[in-house]
C-alpha cells in the first residue's frame, strides 16, 4: 500500500465569483477518515465542490492521486416519489458488491421510493462505501437519520475502511464520537 495521499488540499480557497471558504489544507491517505466540521453555510460543500467541479479553486491547489475513483453522496440525495428502482439495483449501479450491513439487508428488494428518508440515506451511503471507489465523499450523511440510523452509519464507516479514504462533511461534530477520524473545523 502506498503512503502517497489519495487527496491533498494545499492552502485552498474555494468559492464562485468571490471566495467562500479557506484557506484549507489537509492530506487524506488510504484508510483515513477525515471529518470536515462546521456550522451550516460555512462553506463545507463549496470546499468539496472544488474537487468535483461545482465550485472554483480561487487559490491554492487540489491534488488528486492519478487514477483515483470517487464515490460522492450529495447533501440531499435525489429521492423521487415515483421511480421503480429497487435498493439492490441502486447498489449494482455503483458496483457496491460488498455484503450489505444487517440494517440494509431486509430492504434490498424494496423500491427506493418506498423507503423512509433515513433508510434511503443509509442506502446511498452504502452505495458509496460498498463499491470500489478509492475516495468516498459523504456530504451531511446524517440528514434524515434517527439515532439508530446514525449508529448504523458509524458502523458502516468502521467496517468498510480498507485502503480507501473517506471524507465526511457534517455540521454535527458529535457524529465522530466513537469513530476513529481526524476532524478539521471549517469556517473558524
Amino acid at each position: 500500500m502506498s503512503d502517497e495521499p489519495i487527496l491533498s488540499y494545499r492552502e485552498v480557497v474555494a468559492g464562485y465569483a468571490k471566495p467562500v471558504v479557506g484557506p484549507v489544507s489537509f492530506d487524506l491517505g488510504p484508510g483515513d477518515v477525515l471529518g470536515l466540521v462546521g456550522p451550516n453555510g460555512c462553506g463545507k460543500s463549496t470546499l468539496i465542490g472544488a474537487l468535483t467541479g461545482t465550485s472554483k479553486v480561487l487559490s491554492g491547489e487540489v491534488v488528486r492521486k492519478p487514477g483515483t475513483t470517487i464515490a460522492y453522496q450529495r447533501q440531499r440525495p435525489v429521492r423521487e416519489t415515483d421511480v421503480p428502482l429497487r435498493a439492490d439495483e441502486l447498489l449494482r449501479l455503483t458496483a457496491a458488491t460488498a455484503e450489505p450491513p444487517p440494517s440494509l439487508r431486509p430492504l434490498l428488494k424494496t423500491r427506493v421510493d418506498r423507503l423512509s428518508g433515513g433508510q434511503f440515506q443509509l442506502l446511498t451511503v452504502w452505495a458509496c462505501l460498498g463499491g470500489d471507489a478509492r475516495l468516498v465523499i459523504l456530504d451531511e450523511p446524517t440528514n434524515n437519520m434517527d439515532p439508530d440510523a446514525v449508529a448504523a452509519l458509524s458502523e458502516l464507516l468502521l467496517s468498510s475502511r480498507g485502503d480507501r479514504a473517506v471524507l465526511v462533511v457534517t455540521h454535527d461534530a458529535r457524529f465522530f464520537t466513537g469513530v476513529p477520524a481526524r476532524v478539521l473545523e471549517v469556517g473558524r
Binding site: 474537487l51 468535483t52 467541479g53 461545482t54 475513483t69 470517487i70 464515490a71 460522492y72 453522496q73 450529495r74 440525495p77 435525489v78 428502482l85 441502486l90 449501479l93 455503483t94 446511498t124 452505495a127 458509496c128 465523499i137
Partner: peptide
C-alpha cells in the same frame, strides 16, 4: 441506462470522475 441512472441518483459522480 447505467449512466443515466447513476447520473440521476448520484449527479456529481460523473463529473467527479
Amino acid at each position: 441506462s447505467k449512466r443515466l441512472l447513476l447520473e440521476h441518483f448520484f449527479p456529481e459522480s460523473l463529473a467527479a470522475n
